[in-house]
């Protein structure tokens, strides 16, 4: 198993936001956690990345416990995050933003070939390489955040609400890229999304999160047919 969370609990101050959640991701899978705003999806991803500490439970990556490790060590083990609202570095250029993804790896990586791979996936980033990231549109910033996380060829990509604030046509394009990376590049992805329809269509499996607890889990195809899920998240 690539990633496993057991009975994960996370609190903000005295308020518990995630109440004992367990999930796992196998190598090569694309798994979604869907749920409404405020259900705790972003909290879970940030805890897996090590940005927020957990209050209880444990996280395993490649069968080794990482619960107490700081986020930069998790990143070096091959976990990368595409954060909610992209959070690119506004005052670095597009090129510098991508290079932060290769921090500490420049010597052991073939940088030019990695860059040309990234620019092939996101041609607009090549055009804008010398611009400050704050001058990019929302969709371009989202692509930059994916590029920054992807350039190190992670073992596990965490993707947080990539559809938020994007035009529908861009949402479709971003999900197409994620599906392609999973299928053709064999990249393991854990996705959290409000846009259940789009994420279920490219996922193998999914979890439904309701106010900090997992209520349903199963094959993405089964969940799409589930009457409860359809009613609550697919608008049907």
């Amino acid at each position: 198993m690539l990633l496993e969370a057991r009975d994960l609990r996370v609190s903000y101050g005295d308020v518990e936001a995630v109440h004992g959640v367990s999930f796992h991701v196998e190598e090569g899978e694309l798994v979604s956690i869907i749920g409404a705003n405020g259900a705790g999806k972003t909290t879970i991803l940030n805890t897996v990345m090590g940005i927020i500490p957990s209050r209880g439970g444990s996280i395993y990556f490649r069968d080794t416990e990482i619960t107490a490790l700081p986020s930069h060590i998790r990143a070096r083990q091959g976990i990368r995050l595409v954060p909610e609202r992209a959070r690119v570095f506004p005052l670095l250029t597009v090129f510098e933003n991508i290079m932060t993804g290769l921090y500490g790896l420049r010597k052991s990586t073939d940088v030019p070939s990695r860059l040309s791979w990234i620019y092939e996936l996101f041609p607009v980033l090549k055009e804008r390489a010398k611009q400050l990231a704050q001058t990019l549109s929302g969709g371009e910033q989202q692509q930059l955040a994916i590029a920054r996380a992807l350039v190190s060829q992670p073992r596990l990509l965490l993707v947080d609400e990539v559809s938020m604030g994007l035009m529908p046509i861009l949402v479709e394009k971003v999900f197409e890229v994620l599906g392609y990376l999973n299928k053709e590049e064999n990249l393991t992805i854990l996705l959290v999304e409000q846009n259940a329809l789009a994420s279920l269509s490219i996922s193998h499996r999914a979890y439904v999160l309701e106010t900090g607890t997992i209520s349903i889990e199963g094959d993405a195809g089964t969940l799409r047919e589930d009457p409860g899920v359809r009613k609550a998240y697919l608008g049907a």
């Binding site: 990345m49 090590g50 940005i51 700081p70 986020s71 930069h72 998790r74 990143a75 070096r76 990368r80 995050l81 954060p83 959070r87 570095f89 506004p90 005052l91 670095l92 510098e96 290079m99 932060t100 993804g101 921090y103 500490g104 790896l105 420049r106 920054r148 996380a149 190190s152």
Partner: peptide, 25 residues
């Protein structure tokens, strides 16, 4: 330098810099 890039990234978003493998402390 790569150190300078890490310093500038950390000053713009400390948590995200950490999530990219930068030892922010």
């Amino acid at each position: 330098t790569e150190l300078g890039l890490a310093m500038r990234a950390s000053s713009q978003d400390l948590h995200i810099a950490g999530s990219l493998g930068i030892n922010t402390s």
